[in-house]
């Protein structure tokens, strides 16, 4: 008993941390499924040059019988309009989708979270001005502006990311803002002020942990949206022409007669790839939200 007591209060000053999240995640089949789905894609993307049977960036050398050739032992997912291996393109395409998803969502959530927290915590004129800007961005229709921005800036992957960031931080900002407004008025924040805590401390210790579930869930959602947006833009022909992405694969297949020749193998893999990654992120985001919010945990029922 004495030993148990002396061990118990070790975390008085430390935070729950990632270890707890991992321990909880391991017990959730849904979270593990999401994690595995993402791990497969991540592995595929990182080790693309070793995993892929062919180099999809090699110069095109197509013959009439190699265009849209159905799946065979040589090409497990057939070939595309350029007579290239679809599987290899699919594997390399995951890189673009993941990079766009990660980078765009990370920056989006960072900006949105920051704007939301600052506007919500400080309120007054600063908050009003920030939320005013947010509202202006919120009413801009997404797709037309994407198209305009990317065509103006030039179709590169970074411009696509920029366009996605520019248009998707507002959702996070508004959500976080609303949450911070309500947390700010809660008594434990008042108490922290009464005890002499600085604004920075209050935000870090009391406000951030409570908006983090929202930010994380939002992050998963924004990754999905970013990947979908990139694919959509690429499908419309605004993708980075020098890079193979799932979107450009769809664009080429769609624009170059894959549908009319019935070459399903050129359309399905990139389409399913997008669904796979988006689903993986959604599952993982959902479970993480559950873990980070301790009130939703079940052990208090015991």
């Amino acid at each position: 008993m004495a030993q148990v007591l002396s061990q118990a209060p070790t975390s008085v000053d430390t935070e729950a941390g990632w270890r707890t999240i991992w321990r909880q995640l391991r017990r959730s089949p849904m979270g593990l499924a999401g994690l595995c789905m993402l791990a497969v894609v991540l592995f595929m993307a990182i080790f693309a040059p070793w995993v892929a049977p062919y180099d999809p960036y090699a110069p095109v050398r197509a013959r009439i019988d190699t265009i849209y050739a159905p799946p065979s032992a040589e090409h497990p997912l057939g070939t595309d309009d350029g007579g290239k291996d679809v599987l290899s393109a699919f594997i390399f395409g995951a890189r673009v989708s993941l990079i766009v998803g990660f980078v765009a969502s990370a920056i989006t959530v960072l900006i949105g979270g920051l704007v939301g927290i600052v506007a919500g915590y400080y309120g007054g004129r600063v908050g009003g001005a920030l939320m005013g800007v947010t509202n202006i961005f919120l009413v801009i229709p997404d797709l037309p502006l994407y198209v305009v921005l990317v065509s103006l800036l030039g179709p590169s992957i970074w411009n696509i990311i920029l366009a996605i960031i520019l248009l998707s931080w507002t959702g996070t900002a508004r959500l976080v803002y609303a949450q911070v407004l309500s947390i700010r008025e809660r008594q434990f924040v008042t108490r922290a002020r009464a005890i002499g805590a600085s604004s920075g401390y209050i935000i870090r210790k009391h406000i951030l942990p409570l908006v983090l579930p929202i930010i994380l869930a939002q992050n998963a959602l924004v990754i999905s949206i970013a990947i979908l947006s990139e694919s959509g833009l690429a499908f419309l022909g605004l993708g980075d022409p020098s890079l193979i992405s799932w979107g450009t694969m769809l664009n080429f297949a769609f624009g170059r007669g894959a549908v009319s020749v019935g070459a399903w193998w050129a359309l399905l893999p990139p389409g399913l790839g997008i669904v796979w990654v988006v689903l993986g992120w959604t599952l993982l985001g959902y479970v993480i939200e559950d873990i980070v919010n301790p009130r939703a945990r079940t052990h208090h029922l015991m």
């Binding site: 209060p9 975390s11 008085v12 000053d13 809660r186 008594q187 434990f188 008042t190 108490r191 210790k205 009391h206 942990p209 409570l210 919010n293 301790p294 009130r295």
Partner: peptide
């Protein structure tokens, strides 16, 4: 109820 941060342990 309101004056304790629900996410922080009592010790903290």
């Amino acid at each position: 109820y309101a004056s304790l941060d629900p996410r922080i342990t009592v010790g903290e």
